[in-house]
Design a protein around this nucleic acid. Structure first.
Lengths: 197, 197
DNA sequence: CGGTCACCTGACCGACCGGTCGGTTGGCGG
DNA sequence: CCGCCAACCGACCGGTCGGTCAGGTGACCG
């Protein structure tokens, strides 16, 4: 077990690095940039992490930890598939918008920059979320007895795309509130643009 | 007017650079990488372009030219908003999947890497597409007399997200055909997951 | 009080970056 | 056959990158 001080400084580095990676991109952010932002020397970073890659990997892993905790673990408890999917949409969007350290954004954007060994481990975790969405969508379809033949995987990726794209354009200080965004996205996914409700 | 040879070698460079940028990312691709892939010296690249930034900018500009030509110019001719939107979805996805040089993918991914002067010009062109989508969606809503209050901008970005995310996961050699993908995406956006048709 | 260890500094390394430059080449117009 | 010039080469520039390392410092422990 590591001392709290150790994990604290590690977490500080990860938070700052995540912010910089999100603002400038991974490749465009140097270790010196990260060190300067923390009032540290570059060498000090290498006391806590073996490499720049490890920092990125830990950012993503921690982001996925938080995601599992605040989204998946909660919505899995909901037995009704329709309500489960609704809650999932709301919580996923909420996390994306309120995540202070933007780890999720880094996960989305720096997909291919990780060396393949580490990337595989991250992708495996992502894939389990995809499967959860696919299963839930299929349950929703048979529950509501829909007669269309929408491929659950296509629907899962469509939903993921809708939501994950939000970070590219949404600004919290704009005219569109988070609640309205969630409501509209949920309506579109379940009932489409032409919904009458 | 430039000679065909000049534009030819420029286009070759842009195509190869676009492929590399898409595979490894802009910052992770060096001018030497581009030159080697073309069996050229690095200096030769600077005979055709002033800077690496200019190459990225021209890739994006050309990608948007093709997009305007193959998507927007065609679907704008369609008077009925519903049919216009359907055609737009189909053509947008088709372009994304069949675009040989992946310029569109580069446009989507390397948003923030351009210096702000050039980025503004690219973003202005993107914004005009957003406005087109918003207007069409609003026309669809009033045409079908939908009673919901989905914000046209939210719907436009949801649609964009669904479609643009495709490049992150879709593989043409998988079990999901392009036609099926277009059909499912169109159904989801117009009628939702619970569509009965 | 002396020793140890986590934490950190700052100088340093070789590789490589984007970009430049003087010079070569080969095909084409006159 | 000459002269020209776009296209290209390869050495080179200053600077920055990720990463290393010897050493300093201060808190804690016996």
């Amino acid at each position: 077990m590591k001392s709290p001080a150790v994990t604290d400084s590690r977490r500080d580095i990860l938070r700052t690095a995540a912010r910089l990676f999100q603002e400038r991109g991974y490749e465009a952010t140097s270790m010196q940039d990260i060190a300067s932002a923390l009032n540290l020397s570059k060498g000090a970073l290498y006391h806590h992490f073996q490499s720049k890659d490890e920092i990125l990997f830990e950012i993503m892993n921690h982001g996925l930890d938080v995601f599992d905790e605040e989204v998946l673990d909660v919505v899995r408890q909901i037995p009704d598939p329709v309500e489960r999917l609704r809650a999932c949409i709301a919580r996923h969007i909420g996390m994306l918008l309120r995540g202070r350290d933007r780890e999720i954004t880094v996960i989305l954007h720096e997909n291919r920059t990780l060396p393949s060994r580490l990337r595989k481990r991250i992708n495996a975790r992502k894939r389990s979320y995809i499967h959860f969405l696919e299963d839930t969508i299929q349950a929703v379809q048979s529950r509501l007895g829909t007669k269309n033949e929408i491929h659950p995987r296509a629907a899962a990726f469509a939903l993921l795309g809708m939501i994950n794209w939000v970070y590219q354009w949404y600004r919290p200080d704009g005219s569109l509130s988070e609640e309205k965004l969630i409501r509209d996205y949920t309506t579109i996914f379940f009932d489409g643009l032409t919904a009458n409700q």
